[in-house]
């Protein structure tokens, strides 16, 4: 276990950025999001969660992955996706780091998505435990420990006031720790006690949260029965069909593929898409999900049933962003409660 004093943080970031691209939670116009850092930026590591999830780092909102051109009637394709730069993300919360391990199940499954793989391999994630979990947090329902970053984490970190404790969890994490040897300090008994105290306090706060008892087990695992449930119509009535829940969600990963350009020269990109949108499944000869009720159902069935069946985990980490951002206060917590025969 190492530590970095808060007065040394700027120096730490500076050193990291000499070797890597560095992403930090930056505050701009009142919103905090992970963005590439340079000196003088307004870093905010106290805000519990960023407004948008950091999934954009490994799964960009738009990624041009193919360039095409026609020369003498001959078509040429060039693969241009992925990212070679090595980077570090500092201050990601355990739920968001865990979401990376969920996205891995989609993109690193055969056939492996090489662009995603490249981004994942090149990144080092420093995950910061949540000293102050919020009332919209329900990560514990998904087995994520806010006091102990593990999933998707290369280095676990804890803010104990004067310093940030630093514990490498992977080979990549150990390497970075080596590079930062002259900034990171050794810890003593004192810090270990402080860490235990912090973790204890986090667990106590988690136990006080309103959704601590949210139980996924209450959801039936009968796919057809769930699909045909009457709750979808009722719950989806107020849904406006925007895509904010899917875009702020760290685990939503549906994408579209489109071409851009002229006949002789252009590119193909993929971009975030949303199952909430009416054109998501629309074909020339019809649409299997004609109404918002069907689209709404798809989103939650995917997260709570389909993804679980296929990958053994739920496609939710309980970050609570959808809870805060839905314009009409509809969210996965309500869906879970309702499905449990509430």
């Amino acid at each position: 276990m190492k530590q970095v004093y808060k007065r040394d943080l700027e120096r730490l970031w500076q050193t990291i950025s000499e070797h890597f691209e560095l992403y930090l939670p930056l505050e701009q116009d009142g919103k905090v999001n992970f963005m590439p850092w340079k000196q003088g930026e307004n870093v905010n590591i106290d805000r519990l969660k960023t407004d948008l999830s950091p999934k954009n780092i490994i799964f960009p909102p738009t990624e041009t992955y193919l360039k095409f051109r026609t020369v003498n009637k001959r078509l040429c394709f060039e693969s241009v996706g992925g990212k070679n730069d090595k980077y570090v993300v500092f201050g990601m919360r355990p739920c968001d780091a865990a979401s990376y391990s969920i996205l891995d199940k989609v993109f690193l499954q055969e056939p492996i998505d090489r662009f995603y793989e490249e981004r994942r391999t090149n990144g080092i994630i420093i995950s910061l435990a949540c000293s102050e979990p919020e009332e919209t947090c329900f990560c514990s329902s998904f087995g994520i420990a806010a006091d102990n970053p593990v999933l998707g984490t290369d280095i676990a970190a804890w803010d104990i006031g004067e310093s940030i404790l630093w514990q490498p969890k992977s080979e990549k994490g150990k390497k970075l720790t080596g590079i930062l040897d002259n900034i990171l300090q050794d810890t003593s008994e004192h810090e270990i006690i402080a860490l235990e105290r912090l973790q204890q306090s986090i667990r106590e706060k988690l136990a006080q949260l309103p959704w601590v008892d949210l139980d996924l087990e209450i959801i039936s695992n009968n796919m057809k029965e769930m699909f045909e449930s009457k709750v979808w119509e009722e719950l989806s009535k107020s849904c406006l069909g925007c895509g904010v829940c899917t875009f702020v969600c760290p685990t939503c990963h549906c994408f579209d593929i489109q071409d851009f350009g002229a006949e002789r020269n252009g590119e193909r990109f993929r971009c975030w898409d949303s199952c909430m949108y009416s054109d998501f499944t629309r074909m020339a000869h019809g649409n299997p999900r004609k109404t918002q009720t069907e689209r709404f159902r798809q989103r939650f069935m995917h997260k709570l049933v389909y993804f679980l069946n296929n990958n053994g985990v739920y496609a939710c980490v309980g970050c609570g962003r959808c809870v805060e951002k839905c314009p009409v206060n509809m969210n996965i917590v309500k869906v879970i409660k309702k499905l449990g025969g509430d």
Binding site: M223, R270, D273, T281, P288, H302, Y306, N309
Partner: peptide, 19 residues
């Protein structure tokens, strides 16, 4: 069967029937 598809490799998320 035929549904709208984009990636063809089970990732883009739109051609599912259940799981």
């Amino acid at each position: 069967l035929e549904l709208k598809m984009k990636c063809g490799v089970g990732k883009c998320g739109r051609c599912n029937i259940g799981d």
